[in-house]
């Protein structure tokens, strides 16, 4: 007899546990306000990435097309995957002395792992992370980018003491 009672209580409990689950899904069904989907291509205008979003490495250029890269090569050295290549040339400066200047700062987006070591280690804060995330292209070669814009020049800043390694330094990504 006990077995039979057990049999029916089992059925009852089973149905109750199933109903519990159905209540969850059912309640979401009648609450379309909780929908979390974003309509991606349509919301492109409003879509705001976070300030620190690591989309790609960019070189900061100001309005007059000045950048701060002096081709020191530290980013190239720090990159674990070899996704940065620096081609520099010796250009005479105003005083006539030859000075190392960036010719091409080549960035292989296809190899980049967004570890942030280049941006962090750059002594002159020339690099930053960009917000762009739509990197899909049909040709792999298009993922190799030259970061310094054509015609851009290095911005000479008044001689300041070089920041000591490891100390806090404003990150250009969120500044």
């Amino acid at each position: 007899m006990n077995g039979i009672v057990q049999y029916f209580t089992d059925i009852f409990k089973a149905v109750r546990s199933l109903w519990k689950g159905m209540r969850v899904t059912g309640s979401y069904f009648v609450r379309p306000g909780e929908i979390v989907t974003q309509q991606y291509p349509e919301n492109r205008k409003e879509l705001q990435m976070f300030d620190r979003f690591k989309g790609e490495v960019i070189m900061i250029h100001d309005e007059e097309n000045f950048h701060r890269c002096n081709a020191c090569g530290i980013c190239q050295m720090n990159c674990p995957n070899g996704s940065i290549e620096i081609i520099s040339e010796m250009v005479p400066n105003e005083e006539g002395k030859p000075e190392r200047t960036i010719d091409k700062h080549i960035y292989h987006l296809s190899m980049c792992t967004f570890c942030g070591l280049c941006v962090k280690s750059c002594p002159s804060n020339a690099l930053a992370f960009g917000q762009g995330f739509e990197h899909a292209v049909f040709d792999r070669h298009k993922l190799t980018k030259v970061l310094n814009q054509p015609g851009s020049r290095i911005k000479k800043k008044p001689k300041a003491p070089k920041p000591a390694a490891g100390t806090e330094k404003p990150n250009s990504a969120n500044s």
């Binding site: 899904t25 979401y28 069904f29 379309p32 929908i35 979390v36 989907t37 309509q39």
Partner: peptide
């Protein structure tokens, strides 16, 4: 559509 609404999605649209 039904499963989408149950799963907090919009489904085909």
């Amino acid at each position: 559509k039904v499963c989408a609404f149950m799963q907090n999605r919009v489904g085909p649209n």
